[in-house]
Design a binder for these strands. Structure first.
Lengths: 330, 330
DNA sequence: CTGTTAGCGCCTTCAA
DNA sequence: TTGAAGGCGCTAACAG
C-alpha cells in the first residue's frame, strides 16, 4: 500500500501538505493541492485510518451491545443507531451479549482496548460493565434498559405505563384472571413492565397473586414454557400479558398447539410490536415501541456527549402506543 | 490511560518484557511475569489495540455489508457471522447498503481505510466494489448473492432449484396462472429465482407471459405494490410466487386488504422463511433457507482465507427446503 | 503557506 | 532470557 510519503514524493511536496489537502484543514496553494490530488489518484492512495486513529487518539467506531440482533426489536434499534452514526462518520460494531454478563464484559473490554469512540448498551443487568466504561472516560448511552446506581445518558421507553395500558385494556374487555409473563429479574424492563401490570390490576380491583406471574428469558421458547406452566397450574388465567415480542409469539404458539381459543378463552396482549402482527391468527394486540427512534435518539445523544463530554447526563423517555387488534377482545 | 511503559516502570522491567508477558510469546522468567501481571492489575492497564494494529499492520475487524439488517434473513446471517467471528477473535462491523451501490462503495472504502481483516458482502449488483477489495488484497467472501466475473469465495443457496420447487408445488395444487414477484434485475438472487420459476412453468406445460412477472425492490411495500399491480392487470393470476420474505408479507397484506381469499382464490408461496409464518392467517408456505448456517459458513471461509490467502477460491452452495403450509393448498 | 520533526503505543528484530 | 531501539503511517507543533 502506498503511504502518505509516496504521495508526497510524487507530488513534490511534504507529507504535511498531503495531510492538509486530505483533511481540508489549513489553506493550501491550489497548485499544490491539485498535484496532491493527482498523485493520490495515480497511486490509488487511501489513508490508513489505523495510523490516523493512533495519532489522533480517537477512532470512528461505536459499539452497540445488545442481547440479540435476532430480535426484531434490537434490529430496528441498531438500524436507527447505524443511520445516525453513519451520517456522523461512525461505523457500528455489533455485539450480541445473549443476556450473558460475562459476554457483555468481554465486549466492554474490547471496546476499551479498541479505543472505541462510544458505546450504546442495553445491559443485561449488572451495572459494573457500564461503570468500567465511564471510569475509562468512554462515552456511553444506555438504551432500552436502565443502569442502576450510575448517572449515564439514557434512552428508555415508559415501560410501566405501557404495561399498565396493556393490562387495563384486558381488564376493560372483561378478563379477570390476567397473567403476566415477564423477563429476567435482573433486567429493568422486565421489572418495570411487571410493576405496570400490577398497578393496573390494583386499579381495576383485580387480584394479582404470584401464581399468575412467570419470569422467563425474553425468548420465544421461554414464553412458550411459561404459557404452558400457567395453563397447567391449578387455576389457569383467562388472559395473559407478555412482556416482550418473542415471548408473546411463544405464548401464542403454545395456545395454538393446545387448541386454546384466542381471544375467546384467553386474551393476549404483547409488549413490543411484532412484525406481521396484523397477519397473525388472530391478529395480536400489542404495545408498540418507537424502536427505530430509540436507536436514533441514543445515537444522537452519543454524538452530543462525544462533542461535549462534560455536560450533565440526560434521560429521554419515549412513549408507547397500544395497538388494539383481535387477540384481546372477546 | 496507562501505557506499556507505565507497566514496565512499575514492574521494573523493559516494555519488551511486558509485551512478551501479555502476548504469551517467548518464555519469560516467572518472577518477572508475576511482577508484570501485578503491575497490569494495579494500573488497570489495557493494551491499546490501535497501536498494536498499526504495528502489526492487521486488525481484528470484519465488515459485513448487507442491504438491510431490518430484514430477518440478513439478521440471521449476521448472527451466524458474528458467532463464528467472535470465537476467532474478530468483531463485526455492520454495514447496511440499502441496495444502493454508492452506499456500498462508501463502506468498501471504509473497510479499506480501516484495514479491516476481511469483508463479507451481499452485493447490490455491480462487481466493481468487490473488485476493489480483491485488488487491495483484502479477504472477501460473497454471501447470498453471486459476484459475476470475479473469482471469489462464495456461500450461496440453490436459488433456481428453490424457486422451481415453489412454483412446481403451486402447479401441482392446480394453480394455472402463476405469477412471480421477483427482485431487482441487478441482483443475482432475483434473476435466479425468476429463472427457476420459469423453468418450473415450462416443465408443467404452463405459460409464462411477461405480464405475470413483476420486478420489485425486495421490500414489503414493493411486494404490496407488485401484488396490487398484478390484481389490477387484465387477467389476474390465481397464484403468486414471491421471491423473498418481505415481498411475500407485502403481497399477502395486499391480498388481505382487498379481501382476496388465500389459498382459495390465490395461492401463495414465498422464498425465504418468515418469522411466525406458522401463526399467519393463513399460514404461509415458504422455501426455507439455512440463513444462520449461511453466515457461519461465510465466516468460516473468511477465516480460512485470512489464514491461507493464496488458496483457490471456493463456492459453497446450500440447499433450500419447501415448507408446505396452508397458503398454497386449495 | 509550506516543510521539518517528533511522537501516538506497541511489537520485534537485534544484540547482549 | 532480557533490554535497547527502530519504525508501523499519520498528524500537529513549530519553524521558516
Amino acid at each position: 500500500m502506498a503511504t502518505i510519503y509516496d504521495v508526497a514524493q510524487r507530488a513534490q511536496v511534504s507529507p504535511a501538505t498531503v495531510s492538509r489537502v486530505l483533511n481540508g484543514q489549513a489553506t493550501v496553494d491550489p497548485d499544490l493541492a491539485a498535484r496532491v490530488q493527482t498523485a493520490v489518484r495515480d497511486l490509488n492512495y487511501r489513508p490508513n485510518s489505523v495510523a490516523r486513529n493512533l495519532r489522533r487518539s480517537r477512532t470512528t467506531l461505536w459499539a452497540v451491545i445488545i442481547s440479540d440482533v435476532g430480535n426484531p426489536f434490537f434490529t430496528a434499534l441498531v438500524r436507527g443507531v447505524e443511520d445516525v452514526g453513519q451520517r456522523a462518520g461512525y461505523s457500528v460494531v455489533l455485539c450480541n451479549s445473549d443476556e450473558d454478563p460475562a459476554k457483555e464484559a468481554r465486549y466492554v473490554t474490547a471496546a476499551l482496548e479498541d479505543q472505541m469512540a462510544g458505546v450504546i448498551i442495553s445491559s443485561s443487568g449488572r451495572s459494573a460493565n457500564v461503570q468500567r466504561l465511564i471510569e475509562a472516560g468512554t462515552p456511553v448511552v444506555a438504551i432500552d434498559r436502565q443502569i442502576s446506581g450510575t448517572r449515564v445518558d439514557s434512552v428508555l421507553v415508559d415501560n410501566e405505563h405501557g404495561a399498565e395500558l396493556a393490562t387495563a385494556h384486558l381488564a376493560e374487555h372483561g378478563y379477570r384472571r390476567i397473567a403476566c409473563i415477564t423477563g429476567p429479574r435482573t433486567v429493568s424492563t422486565a421489572v418495570q413492565r411487571l410493576r405496570g401490570y400490577q398497578r393496573a390490576l390494583a386499579a381495576a380491583g383485580l387480584e394479582a397473586p404470584d401464581s399468575l406471574v412467570r419470569h422467563a428469558d425474553f425468548r420465544e421458547d421461554g414464553g412458550y414454557a411459561a404459557m404452558a406452566s400457567l395453563l397447567d397450574a391449578g387455576d389457569p388465567p383467562d388472559a395473559v400479558f407478555a412482556a416482550n415480542n418473542l415471548m408473546t409469539v411463544g405464548a401464542v404458539e403454545c395456545l395454538v398447539d393446545r387448541g386454546v381459543a384466542i381471544p375467546a378463552e384467553i386474551g393476549v396482549v404483547g409488549f413490543d410490536e411484532i412484525p406481521g402482527a396484523r397477519l397473525f391468527r388472530p391478529s395480536l394486540t400489542t404495545i408498540a415501541q418507537p424502536t427505530y427512534e430509540l436507536g436514533r435518539t441514543a445515537a444522537t445523544l452519543l454524538a452530543e456527549r462525544i462533542a461535549e463530554p462534560d455536560r450533565p447526563p440526560s434521560t429521554v423517555t419515549l412513549q408507547t402506543d397500544l395497538k388494539i387488534r383481535e387477540s384481546s377482545q372477546r
